[in-house]
Write a protein that binds this DNA or RNA. Structure first.
Length: 360
DNA sequence: AACGCGGGGAT
DNA sequence: ATCCCAGCGTT
């Protein structure tokens, strides 16, 4: 395969590639978690110099192990490594286990590291899927799965395993990662230097730069709101006052219960604040409301960037002059309800309300 | 599923 | 100065 030929020619000369000692491979893989190659090299050399074998690491005081990790970060990696090494010395006669189950049971060894050790040290046809590999595979096969999802890693492992040429697990897995690190880089991949550029679906479709797809881990900002469920009287009996959103922006032109935002979660606990703010906001639109402090519903609407937490207060309207925009408010009953376009959260609230109201 | 771990590089 | 990176253990 082109990739293997490329790897044999272009691979970097790295200290851990000069050793076939499973323990050295193991140490390097732990160090390389979340840490770039250039940073790891001096640490790896010092570490195996001081702890050349499993036994010596097992026997060393923890302080000294941590001292050799100082500056690498993620110190639990070092502590877990020593714990696991001690287990190997005691349980496996100082031989790094070559069974998937055994090795996966060691502290600090997850799916990636287990696959890396088994394939690199023992040439077993096990996938070793890290961020590099997911990026390369996403582009090569033009996969649109969100690589932030655990299920995507699982399916990529299946794919990566199928791709391993017979007897070439060690080189193939390393070649895949090397390609991701050197050529198929996150920002600007140098496709001109890629050995498989001709077969790369992502490249063919000119989409190599937009892959892999990954949802932002950034968590949605919570916001806190009060909504008014305004029950109609007289001619509007059995109906509820609703409002249309502006033509542009979030949820453009969709219908909703009148609602306002409060500063934070604490203010959201105080119903009198919600009542006051709702009445004030409605009045600016020419609608005089009498809002109660009775909570008739609660709902959450999750966007990618924010989360609405909505508490619904019962209310009635005492006067409607609609000084603002006449068309942005409407009374809606169960019959007209379906013909309006709602964000899901208000559809649910109103459906619940109408079902409840009809049953009474 | 969400969070914490810790440095370094990119922006 | 802030964002992003990315395996694993814990909760």
């Amino acid at each position: 395969m082109e990739l293997l030929k490329w790897y044999q020619k272009e691979q970097r000369d790295l200290p851990w590639r000069r050793s076939r000692d499973p323990y050295h491979i193991w140490v390097s893989e732990i160090m390389l978690q979340q840490t770039r190659v250039d940073t790891v090299i001096p640490y790896f050399n010092r570490f195996v110099d001081r702890f050349p074998s499993l036994q010596e690491l097992a026997a060393a005081p923890e302080d000294e192990v941590l001292k050799h990790w100082e500056g690498l970060g993620y110190y639990s990696r070092a502590r877990n490594l020593q714990t696991a090494v001690r287990e190997v010395v005691e349980k496996y006669g100082s031989q790094v286990p070559s069974g998937k189950k055994e090795i996966s049971g060691l502290k600090g060894v997850g799916p990636y590291t287990a696959g890396a050790i088994l394939s690199i040290a023992y040439n077993q046809p096990e996938p070793a899927v890290d961020g590099n590999v997911m990026r390369v595979l996403s582009r090569y096969f033009c996969l649109e799965d969100d690589i932030a999802r655990p299920s995507t890693r699982i399916s990529m492992e299946g794919l990566a395993q199928e791709l391993i040429p017979a007897g070439e697990a060690a080189d193939f897995n390393q070649a895949l990662m090397e390609l991701g690190a050197m050529v198929c880089t996150p920002k600007s991949p140098t496709c001109s230097e890629c050995p498989v550029t001709a077969m790369c679906l992502g490249r063919q479709q000119g989409r190599e730069k937009e892959l892999p797809l990954k949802t932002k881990a950034k968590k949605a900002r919570p916001v806190f709101r009060f909504a008014a469920l305004v029950e109609g009287t007289g001619a509007n009996a059995g109906k509820v006052l609703v409002r249309q959103r502006p033509d542009t922006g979030l949820l453009a032109k969709m219908w909703e219960l009148p609602h306002i935002e409060v500063a934070d979660a604490d203010e959201w606990e105080i119903m009198s604040t919600g009542k006051a703010k709702l009445e004030e906001a409605a009045l600016e639109d020419g609608v005089r409301l009498r809002v109660t402090e009775q909570v008739v519903g609660e709902a959450q609407h999750i966007f990618t960037h924010l989360v609405w937490n909505i508490r619904v207060l019962a209310a009635t309207a005492t006067e409607e002059t609609y000084v603002a925009d006449r068309t942005s408010y409407a009374w809606v009953g169960p019959e007209q309800f379906e013909s309006y376009v709602w964000p899901n959260v208000f559809r649910k609230l109103l459906t619940e309300y109408f079902i409840h109201a009809i049953n009474e």
